[in-house]
Structure formats: C-alpha cells, structure tokens
Nucleic acid binder design. Structure first.
Lengths: 228, 228
DNA sequence: ACGTAAGGATCGTTCAACAATTCGACAAGA
DNA sequence: TCTTGTCGAATTGTTGAACGATCCTTACGT
C-alpha cells in the first residue's frame, strides 16, 4: 500500500475525532433516561432541578432540550417548560405508516450478507431472551431486529430516521401496562420474515411484513390509551 | 350544536395558539437566508456578528443554531463554530436513496384527489415559469412538485422529512454553477410522471420515477464538485 | 522543513439578573 | 354553587458579562 492510500484510509476515522460538547452529553444522558422509562411520558422536566442535578447551567441544559425536542422525545411548550413526549394515537398510526415505507423498501432490495447477519443475530437474541422469560430484553432485541432490517436500505439518513422513530415508539411502550404480551407473538414472526428475505422471495416478504405491521399496529392502538 | 360540542370544535384551533420563541424565529430567519443562498455553503456563521446583527444574545442564537444543526443545514464543529453545511458527494447519493424510497412508495399508493391537485398545480407552475424563462421559479416549483408527490404517503413525518431533505438539496444547487441546465429537462418528465399516476398505472409510474431519479442523480453528481 | 512559543480571536460554559408568562388560590359577585 | 376578577408565587425566556479552553496565525529558532 502506498503512503497516499494509507492516509486516504486513515481519513475514514475522521468522524471519531469529533468530541462532544456538554450540551450533547447532557442530551445523551436525558435520551437514555427517557428511553429506559426513568422519565415517564407526560412528565415535566424542570430546568432548575435538572441543571442543578447535572451541575450544568440552565443555558447549556436548554441547548440539550432543543436537541431532544427536534427528535420528538421532548415537547417544548412556550413558557410552560419541556415535557417528555406523550404520543397520541395518531402519532402511533403515523409511526407505523413510516415503518411500512422504510421496512417495506428494505426487504424489496437485494440484501447485503453482512447486514443480514446483524438481522439474524438480533433475531436469535430475541429468541434466547424469550426462552429465558426476559421480556425487557426481547423488546430491545426486537427493536434491534427492525433497526437492522431497515439498514438494508443502505442509507445513513434512513438509519438515523429509524433510530428516532423507534425511540419514539419506546415512549408508547412505556405507557402500556403490559409490554410482554405485545412483544411475545413477534419473536416467531421475525424468523419467518427473515427466512423469506434470505431465500430471496422479496414480494412475499413485503406482503408478510405488511401483515406483520398491520397486526402490531392494531394490537398497539387497541391497548394504547394515552388518557390518564 | 351543543355548548360542549362547540368548545370541542374550538379545540381544533389549539395549535394556532402556539406562538414561537425568539430562538425559533431566529432559526426561521437563518433557514430562509440559507435556503435562498444568502449564506453560502461552507461559510462560517459568527456567533458574535450574527447575534449583534439580529440583536439577540449569543445564548439565544446558539439555541437557534442547535435547531438548524439538527436539520442538517448547519455543521457544528466544536470550538470552531457553525458553518453552512456543504454536502459531500456521498450526501447527494444518500439524499437520492431516500428520495427513491419516499417518492417510490408515494406513487405506489392510491392517490387522494386533493393532494393530486396540489401536484398538478406545482407542475403547471413549473411549466409556466419555464415558458417565461424564470428558472429560479422553475426550481422552486419543481421542489413543490416533489414535496406534493411525497405527501401522497399521507404521513406528517414523511412530509417533514422530505422538507428537510429538499432544503438540504438546495444547498447542493447553490454550489452548482448552472442550476437552470439542471432543472430544464425535468419539467416535461413531471408531466409524464403525473400522467402515469393519474391513470393508475402505478408500477409504470414507479419505474419511470426510478429512471427519473437515476438520471437526476447522475447529472447532479457529475456537475457537483464541492472542492473549491 | 519542522518544532515551538506567543498572541489574538472565537467558542464553550457559567452566572446573575430581570421581564414575561403561567398557574393556583382566593375573594367578590350573581 | 358557580362564575369571574385579581393577586402573587413559581418558572421560563432572554440578556449581558465574564472567564477558561481551544483553535489559528505568525514569528522565531533549530
């Protein structure tokens, strides 16, 4: 390898150089807390209390709030504060509309073996977790499954979109009383879907997926009552 | 109508109450300036200069920067400042990947007459502008055409995504020397595409669209040299 | 050509202050 | 009892100043 090629290769690591500002790290922390349900949907996040707890200034915290607001995890109401987003039923419907588009287009493409391996790994993890009755893990593995599935589109922007979308879906799960009943039936479906994709029967996979998502949406909407 | 019904109806106007903070209005101004090319891709936006010009504090301006950064219009580099985003060739490729997914799924659905009317109106506007040699207007009408086309998906989130995506594409146009040569051939194609959609030949429309986008992407990537 | 040092410019973050707004409580009136 | 007006506490919105950290340029020496 020539020197020029070596440095060209090195430039791939460029993004890893980007450190992060305090505001971004604060956003990371809050995102994680929201995602794990520590902050519940609808809850108000006090600027004073949180800035004090994290030992950052209100200004810095507000920058972090803006970031998460743009990701639809927080709801910023003028002069009233920021609240953990509480998705409406219409939000759920829209989320599934987008999923149908993204996942549908994903299974219609010729899959790359590497990303397909990720899909399969997520599926197996979900199965193992289900066998161990660990429904929390089943849920996250299931999310990984669909995230990997969408990454078959081979588009960074779509990956990012799906990430946000699933984070938003997590909010929905947190207001449901019984997430295990929701995740259980899909462990098996994931295997079937992956089988269809692997064997190249793309239209069948797409049809199966549509049915899959219809079913999930119906279950979710039925069980979902964001009114307290 | 009962009183209860009246107030229930009134609650539809709830969103109109939402005023906007200074940071959001600042973001609106900057977004517009970037979109119209007043701020050129790659240009650095000084916190001090802009906060002074708009008479807002640096803190408020930074909140606005965070918003636009999340929309990929600004590039925030730690300790170096914010720059108007200068999309790379890979960005262009990815933008078109997403467009293929969004627009492709749009034309495969049964179109609603109202949104279809919007598509047609944008197409006609582009044609009129082309007849008058107003290529600036052709560009914006063409964007409206595709925005309306995507809205056939009937999903607010997809609409929003497309909006951002097209704003990002505008950045690309601004670094090209000759946008008119780029927009010209697509005026006619828009009419053909709309014809296919209207007559319900969805798969043909999808195929035509794929070819359309392939062509546009090739033209763009060929003419696009983000190196100064 | 390379390493180092110094300086200025700009960003990152904090802090304190004040204006604007919301919200609940409570009293006045029908 | 129900409605409406008003007050005050609490919180957010925004500002301006301050200081350390980082980057960039220039100059100097090897």
């Amino acid at each position: 390898m020539e020197v020029d090629d070596l440095v060209a290769d090195l430039s791939q690591d460029r993004p890893r150089l980007g450190r992060s500002s305090t505001a971004e790290r604060v956003a990371d922390i809050l995102r994680e807390r929201i995602s794990e349900g520590f902050f519940q949907p609808g809850q108000r996040l006090s600027e004073e209390a949180i800035s004090e707890a994290l030992r950052v200034s209100r200004n810095t915290l507000r920058e972090a709030f803006r970031l998460l607001g743009h990701e639809r995890l927080l709801d910023h109401q003028l002069n009233r504060g920021v609240f953990v987003r509480l998705p409406s039923v219409e939000d759920v419907l829209d989320l599934y509309r987008v999923r149908r588009v993204l996942e549908g287009s994903a299974v219609r493409r010729p899959p790359s073996p590497q990303t397909l391996a990720l899909v399969k790994e997520a599926m197996r993890d979900a199965e193992r977790a289900a066998a161990e009755d660990d429904w929390q893990r089943v849920g996250t593995a299931n999310i990984r499954f669909h995230q990997a599935l969408v990454s078959l589109n081979d588009s960074p922007r779509i990956d990012e979109l799906m990430r946000q979308l699933l984070a938003e879906l997590r909010l929905v799960f947190h207001v449901m009383d019984n997430p295990r009943a929701f995740h259980e039936p899909f462990v098996e479906r994931n295997r079937v879907l992956l089988g269809l994709v692997e064997s190249g029967r793309r239209e069948e996979a797409a049809a199966y997926l549509d049915d899959y998502l219809d079913h999930a949406e119906k279950l979710l909407v039925h069980a979902y009552e964001p009114n307290r």
